[in-house]
């Protein structure tokens, strides 16, 4: 018999109530139960950062957290950050500067970058590269990701 836990989480502004197995990872709950498949899984050791979401405003790898730990929290996923007709500045930066190729790491990259800019609206290139330590991209060599974040920062501070 599997025991479950009742959780209440605000996801992208909407209150979600669920019974989850204690071992259910936040990323699996978001993807499988809430169908928020924009959050990706690229590893099993919390290196790649494809699964980064915001939990109470902080960038968190959702593969490193149980859904139960998000009880009472506000979670924002890539789907809640901005929409195609109302892009977040970082999403727009990624589009403008060709900050993505295959797009698999992109949601995590964008969520990490959005949190960086919330903390530090005008980061140096070194600060940007440091902030991306927990996110891997295999396509871009990070070159245009850095430019995308600079683009977003410029837009936000202009």
């Amino acid at each position: 018999m599997t025991t479950t836990m009742a959780i209440k989480v605000t996801v992208n502004g909407e209150t979600r109530v669920a019974d989850v197995e204690p071992r259910t990872l936040l990323v699996h709950w978001l993807r499988e139960d809430l169908a928020l498949t924009g959050t990706h899984i690229g590893c099993d050791t919390s290196q790649c950062g494809a699964c980064v979401v915001h939990v109470d405003g902080r960038a968190v790898k959702s593969c490193t957290m149980f859904a139960a730990q998000a009880d009472g929290c506000a979670v924002t996923t890539i789907e809640g950050l901005g929409a195609a007709d109302a892009l977040h500045a970082v999403q727009d930066g990624f589009w403008e500067e060709h900050g993505l190729q295959c797009g698999f790491c992109t949601p995590g990259m964008i969520m990490t970058a959005a949190e960086l800019l919330a903390r530090n609206p005008d980061p140096s290139e070194a600060e940007i590269r440091h902030a991306l330590e927990g996110n891997l991209c295999r396509c871009t060599g990070y070159h245009n990701i850095v430019r995308a974040i600079q683009h977003a920062a410029k837009g936000a501070t202009a």
């Binding site: 498949t37 959050t39 789907e79 990624f94 403008e96 797009g103 698999f104 992109t106």
Partner: peptide
């Protein structure tokens, strides 16, 4: 800029595990 991007930057891509 790429026409592929709007869905990928908003989490609307459709990958295998989706």
């Amino acid at each position: 800029k790429r026409r592929e991007d709007p869905k990928l930057i908003t989490g609307q891509g459709q990958f295998l595990d989706d």
